[in-house]
C-alpha cells in the first residue's frame, strides 16, 4: 500500500508546498522592509554636480555612425552623491545603480532616455556612493543627427536583483538639468581659448 514511489511523491509534494510558502514569506517580508519604516520608493536622495559634457565626432558603427557619416558623441564628467544602504536586506543579491538622462527632440515627438554611468553593488558596505570627477562609462549618441542643443534631465535609477522573487525598480530625481553645448567646433574652440 505504501510503495516507494508513493512515499517519494508525498515527500516531493510536501517539499514543494513548503518551499512555496517560504519563498512567499521571504518576498513579502523583504518588500515590507523596503516600504516601512522608510519608503525607499520616495525617500531616496541623490545629488549630481558640476557635470561637464565633452563632444566628439565618431565615424564607427559602434558609436552610432551610419555609413561612416560623422556622429556626435557625448561623454561626461560628474560628481555624484547618494546613499543606497536602505535597498539592502535579506533578499538583495545586488543593486544595479545607473545614472540616466531624459530629453526630447525639438518638436517633442521623440522621447529619449540614455545611460551615462552604471555600477553593480553587491555589498551593503559599498552602497554609499561618493564620486568626484567621475567619467561617464559610455560614449552616448542620439538617434537623430545631433546631440548638441538637447536639454538633459538627470535621474539616478536603481534595480534590486533579489535572491528569489520579483525584480524591483526605483528612481531618484536629481533635479539637475544641462543643455549640451551647440556644436562640436564651438566646444573645441572654447577649450583652445581656455
Amino acid at each position: 500500500m505504501f510503495s516507494l514511489s508513493q512515499r517519494f511523491q508525498v515527500l516531493i509534494n510536501q517539499a514543494v508546498t513548503f518551499s512555496v510558502f517560504i519563498i512567499a514569506f521571504i518576498v513579502a517580508t523583504s518588500y515590507i522592509d523596503l516600504i516601512y519604516p522608510n519608503n525607499v520608493f520616495n525617500t531616496g536622495v541623490a545629488t549630481v554636480n558640476s557635470i561637464k559634457p565633452s563632444l566628439s565626432l565618431r565615424t564607427s558603427r559602434y558609436f552610432g555612425s551610419i555609413n561612416s557619416k560623422p556622429k556626435e558623441n557625448v561623454r561626461l564628467e560628474f560628481d555624484l552623491d547618494s546613499d543606497l544602504t536602505n535597498l539592502f536586506n535579506w533578499n538583495t543579491k545586488q543593486v544595479f545603480v545607473y545614472l540616466t538622462a531624459e530629453y526630447n527632440n525639438t518638436k517633442n515627438t521623440v522621447i529619449n532616455e540614455v545611460t551615462f554611468w552604471d555600477n553593480i553593488i553587491t555589498k551593503q558596505e559599498d552602497a554609499v556612493l561618493h564620486l568626484e570627477k567621475a567619467k561617464s562609462k559610455y560614449s552616448v549618441w542620439d538617434i537623430s543627427e545631433q546631440f548638441s542643443g538637447k536639454s538633459l534631465k538627470f535621474k539616478l535609477n536603481w534595480n534590486i536583483q533579489p535572491w528569489v522573487g520579483p525584480l524591483t525598480y526605483g528612481e531618484i530625481d536629481t533635479g539637475y538639468e544641462l543643455v549640451v553645448p551647440k556644436k562640436v567646433e564651438e566646444s573645441s574652440k572654447k577649450q583652445r581659448v581656455n
Binding site: 544595479f96 521623440v110 529619449n112 532616455e113 545611460t115 552616448v140
Partner: peptide
C-alpha cells in the same frame, strides 16, 4: 540583456 538606451515616439507607436 539590460536596456541601456531607449528612444520612443510620443504616441509609443515605435520604440528603439
Amino acid at each position: 540583456h539590460r536596456v541601456l538606451r531607449e528612444h520612443h515616439s510620443a504616441n509609443f507607436e515605435k520604440q528603439y
